[in-house]
Design a protein around this nucleic acid. Sequence first.
DNA 1: GTATTTAAGCTTGCATGGAAGATGGCGCGC
DNA 2: GCGCGCCATCTTCCATGCAAGCTTAAATAC
Lengths: 240, 240
Amino acid sequence: MARARSSEDPETQGAAAGEKRISLVDDAYAAMRAAIRDASFAPGYQASEQEIALRLGMSRTPVHEAAIRLQEDGLVRVLPRKGILILALAPDDMREIYDVVIAMEGRAAELVAALPDEARLAAAQTLDAHTDAMAAAHARGDLPGWGSADAAFHAALIAQARNGRMSRIVQAINDQSHRARMLTLNLRRTLDASIGEHRRIAVAIRAGAIEDALEAARQHRIRARDELLPLLNSYGLKHL
Amino acid sequence: MARARSSEDPETQGAAAGEKRISLVDDAYAAMRAAIRDASFAPGYQASEQEIALRLGMSRTPVHEAAIRLQEDGLVRVLPRKGILILALAPDDMREIYDVVIAMEGRAAELVAALPDEARLAAAQTLDAHTDAMAAAHARGDLPGWGSADAAFHAALIAQARNGRMSRIVQAINDQSHRARMLTLNLRRTLDASIGEHRRIAVAIRAGAIEDALEAARQHRIRARDELLPLLNSYGLKHL
DNA sequence: GTATTTAAGCTTGCATGGAAGATGGCGCGC
DNA sequence: GCGCGCCATCTTCCATGCAAGCTTAAATAC
């Protein structure tokens, strides 16, 4: 939403092959963003613009401008005359992030449940398809598959609400928490609880039950948060 | 939260005198942002970076980098090789903005209502003070005063939730809708309704009634939206 | 008069150089 | 041995130059 770049699933974009790229700044932005997501730039790492520019085969200018955008996205901090710092996430950041997600997805569920019949049913069907994919991945013990199907469900929920600003905000928030999610995927026990809760959301939407959809979406995220945060603290993960 | 710049009330910052500014980019950002807020840069206006740089007495580079940040904030669009376009707001944008605000302030109200006793009571008191200011301004027919007290109330609500990401998001959204709010201030009829609803929010928070606080905050914004959007449409305001 | 082509003038994209600030190490004084 | 100050080096910040793309308008062909 920030740029042309319109891949449906923010979780599994990455390469985005067929695009005619015109701007080196966009290249640098995409490359750095990807590097941060998959932790090739580890949190806490402090890079110099010169070095990144060299690695990407461009001059310092586009790297610098991309860094500004990344800073606005909350992924890095550019320290005056010191370099680019890849931001780490503390448990408290995860609390903040969850509150934003709880608020946004709750409202999104309401909006989708309030759509006219046809669009609403189509949305519910899309959501159910993602939940099916989660169940299938769960059945065959495919944890990464479960993770990306889960992400696809939530991305679809937001997308169906047809609110560009909400999409953009949630995507930025997801970028920030992506590493933490990947890391904690292995720790989570109650994958099937998520599946059941997703079903409940879809049911409420299909029925046009606005209130129920809001509450189901909220409770789903609240439970996930209450499951995750203690886990982070008990593992002593001060930054991730 | 984006920068050092930490004025309590995002509505009435502006000059921000006592700060030692070190970066021309920050200067340019602040100047352009202020110009857009008070409509010295009218929406739809297309400026060239060169021209702005000249007016601000700096070179194109800092202006360009500030423009990137403003674009990320959703205030302008930089058109490749065409210049900087000051974005206008369509009624549909206002719908999007209200949905975000409804979601965020609702959650914020919950969080504040869930604070421990002392903090919660202090928060309620702060909110009531702002509502008092609104009532006083209303009584003496001071519309701008009413507007800024109203803004202060909502800013305080978000601030008390102690979530930096929420604050940042709401501030960005408010920047976008600032012009529209100023413009429609004169059209609004039910100023006293707002006062009553603000009281209800504060009461719920003081009582620690989480559910009530959420619902009161949501309903307040929903009503305001339902009052404003038809107004915009009936006046044929396609962009503002 | 109209349509087509061409060229000029605008714009930003990006590279690069000089300047200023921060940091770490080295040497000197004690 | 220990602490303090200075300098070398590394970093970004900002100005500027050059190139490329888009728009517009003029000039030419018909």
